[in-house]
């Protein structure tokens, strides 16, 4: 080991090997994954990300939400995500193909957000998310989240009608209203767009354990939980 050229060559090859397998191999393997077209609904899944939600994804990145929130539902073999109602099932690789910046997250200081749009599904969902962002401490469940009051502005009501999307919070001075900025609107539009509710037939087939053979009696046994870790990546 007295030759620098040998060390260089070896170092280069060692890293090349892992690059060829992990980033490059996976890009070749499933980087070209296409959207699934549902013939009955005549729609492609995952759906295209609409304008405000796409801008909201940028706000999500610039505010660093991903340092506390993940966006990946793990299967039953890997945790209790489904039991926590963070999703109906594990996330599939295909669900991320439309996202310009995929942020799976590495830490769960806050809850998983992959299906936050499915959890906030009432008519006042946007209003609830605005209130949460404005003052998380108002609710004990979310008290550890930092405030995002800077995403809202107080406007004088003098000579104007109140805005339709003004927040109903008590802390605003009389004669003023509290309205979300455009960034807050985009962020909330993005959060509400996060829902993986479509069940892709191909992934579903790959991830469902073969059904036990039914022989006569259908009281035989309850369906067993998936024992083996399911193959997560669908083939092209």
């Amino acid at each position: 080991m007295n030759r620098a050229s040998l060390v260089f060559l070896g170092a280069f090859l060692a890293l090349l090997l892992s690059w060829a397998a992990l980033p490059f191999g996976n890009a070749r393997g499933y980087g070209g994954l296409a959207a699934h077209v549902d013939d009955t609904e005549n729609k492609a899944y995952p759906a295209r990300i609409a304008g405000p939600a796409a801008r909201g994804a940028l706000v999500y990145a610039d505010l660093g939400c991903a340092y506390c929130h993940t966006q990946q539902v793990r299967g039953d073999a890997d945790g209790a995500d489904v039991a926590r109602h963070w999703g109906e099932r594990q996330s599939y690789a295909r669900e991320y193909i439309r996202e310009p910046r995929v942020l799976l997250g590495a830490l769960r200081a806050g809850p998983d957000l992959r299906n936050v749009g499915a959890r906030y599904n009432t008519a006042d969902a946007a209003e609830r998310l605005y209130k949460l962002l404005y003052n998380p401490a108002a609710d004990n469940q979310t008290a550890l989240m930092p405030q995002h009051a800077f995403l809202f502005e107080q406007r004088s009501l003098e000579g104007r009608q109140p805005s339709a999307n003004a927040l109903k919070v008590s802390s605003v001075r009389s004669g003023f209203e509290l309205v979300p900025t455009e960034r807050a609107e985009s962020l909330v539009a993005y959060l509400l767009s996060l829902k993986d509710t479509y069940d892709y037939p191909e992934e579903k087939r790959l991830n469902t354990p073969p059904a036990p053979k039914k022989e006569g009696s259908h009281q035989a046994s309850e369906p067993k939980p998936a024992a083996a870790k399911p193959a997560e990546a669908p083939k092209k």
């Binding site: 892992s18 299967g75 073999a77 945790g79 599939y92 991320y96 997560e232 990546a233």
Partner: peptide, 15 residues
């Protein structure tokens, strides 16, 4: 150089 992939356990990537 390969060990980083272990961080993806449970993530939606090929098993």
């Amino acid at each position: 150089t390969w060990a980083g992939a272990a961080r993806l356990a449970g993530a939606p990537v090929p098993a």
